[in-house]
Write a protein that binds this DNA or RNA. Structure first.
Lengths: 139, 139
DNA sequence: ATGATAAAGAGAAGGCGTCTCATTTGAATG
DNA sequence: CATTCAAATGAGACGCCTTCTCTTTATCAT
């Protein structure tokens, strides 16, 4: 399935801004980009896309399950492509480095906890904050 | 230990705004208050405390380990007294209801994951979002 | 009580994100 | 392929939460 088909499958028209933003996200898998980051990349590529559009598109992508939105420590949002594989994050509070992980045991416990509380889970977020090995050395 | 002593132990002068904010948080344990909420409560009690002061004090309290700051779905911050007992949250995305839980297994797995990645954990946050039992019924 | 210093109050300013509205674009139709 | 109309975009204003600045005030040690 190509990008255009992917957008249509999500119920979105295949417009230039949407295709480009999808491309950018695909080209930077594993990174966590803010709307501003994406906006700048678009401008660097001579694409006149408004920042408002970037926000709109990202919100639509999120609703369509194409991207995941995260809010690390500082509360401002970053995005990454959602490849169906949920994962959680370890975030270094000093250098901003982010590592991803997936723990089946934690996932299972979460389902059970929600179940016992009578909640139907839609999604969840687990962030572990701390100092990465490099930053521990630097004091 | 009374409130005044608690503040001094945290390295903070025992000022009126700080004492009052601490009182408010204590009187509402289990609730999650925004800075604005606390500001309004102060005004209702005829206390002329500036909103900026509320934010400052809450940030200081957080740094001192007296309160925990959370960002649920919408990105804006809420606070609660930190009684030493870490816990995580189940949040209903429809009515905003929040339930707390603590799962030793999850806690343990987190420590191990951080360990294996070479991270030294400072703190972590786990939010499970979904619909509470009441809201499931309401469609 | 007094002085040094931290904290508070008020309002301006900042930052991220959303809204509005005129204009353009996409894609279905003839 | 031209037409058409809803949907999407761009630009900038706007809004909200939070922080900053600066003067005034309060705290605490002496």
């Amino acid at each position: 399935m190509n990008d255009e088909q992917r957008l249509k499958a999500a119920g979105l028209k295949a417009t230039v801004p949407r295709l480009k933003i999808l491309e950018i996200l695909q080209a930077r898998e594993g990174q966590h980009l803010s709307a501003e980051d994406i906006y700048k990349i678009l401008l660097e590529n001579q694409l006149d896309v408004g920042l408002a559009t970037v926000y709109r598109v990202l919100t639509q992508f999120e609703a369509a399950g194409l991207v995941a939105r995260h809010r690390f420590e500082d509360g401002h949002a970053v995005f990454e492509l959602d490849q169906g594989e949920h994962h959680d994050h370890l975030v270094c509070t000093r250098c901003g480095r982010v590592e991803e992980f997936l723990d089946p045991v934690i996932e299972e416990r979460q389902r059970r906890i929600a179940d016992e509380a009578g909640f139907r889970i839609t999604h969840h977020q687990l962030y572990i904050f701390g100092l990465c090995s490099d930053c521990q050395d630097k004091g």
